[in-house]
């Protein structure tokens, strides 16, 4: 076969996004009201969404590196290097304020637009503006 690894990796990445986006739509998470009704304790469905996605990947993240030394179309299995500090806690609080206000997070904003919920373009624009402000701010921190 002449299809090279990067092409296969890109195709698999696209497929991963499609599955993810389809799941968000199926779980009604692309509708801000579904998220808000969880946060307001009217419907605890979001916990089931999170629970099933996490449970599956607890197994996959543990098994995959034991099953193979490297991913199918890549070099290494990555881990999430993250250590909590004051800055990231402030980030978590800000994310919670915004999420609690509008009921939209980054994944559902993308999948929702694919599903034709054009109202979410406003949320997408907001997230883009927030990420721009963060990057410009972080750039200034770096210069200082």
């Amino acid at each position: 076969m002449s299809i090279n690894q990067p092409t296969l990796a890109s195709f698999a990445t696209l497929l991963s996004g499609v599955l993810f986006g389809f799941g968000l739509a199926l779980a009604t998470m692309i509708r801000p009201e579904s998220v808000l009704s969880f946060l307001q304790f009217d419907d605890f469905g979001l916990l089931l969404v999170l629970g099933s996605a996490v449970t599956l990947n607890l197994a996959v993240f543990w098994l995959a590196p034991r099953w193979r030394t490297r991913p199918l179309f890549g070099d290494t299995f990555q881990t999430r290097p993250f250590s909590i500090d004051r800055r990231s806690l402030v980030g978590g609080i800000l994310f919670g304020i915004g999420w609690g206000l509008c009921g939209v997070c980054p994944g559902p904003a993308l999948a929702g637009i694919g599903a034709g919920s054009m109202d979410l373009l406003v949320a997408l624009g907001g997230i883009l503006a927030g990420a721009l402000a963060h990057g410009l701010w972080a750039s200034r921190q770096r210069d200082a």
Partner: peptide
């Protein structure tokens, strides 16, 4: 709410990693 909430959560998600 979508605009303001999106902007705050977008900034926060990036700051919070």
């Amino acid at each position: 709410k979508l605009a303001v909430g999106g902007a705050i959560s977008g900034f926060g998600a990036r700051l919070g990693g």
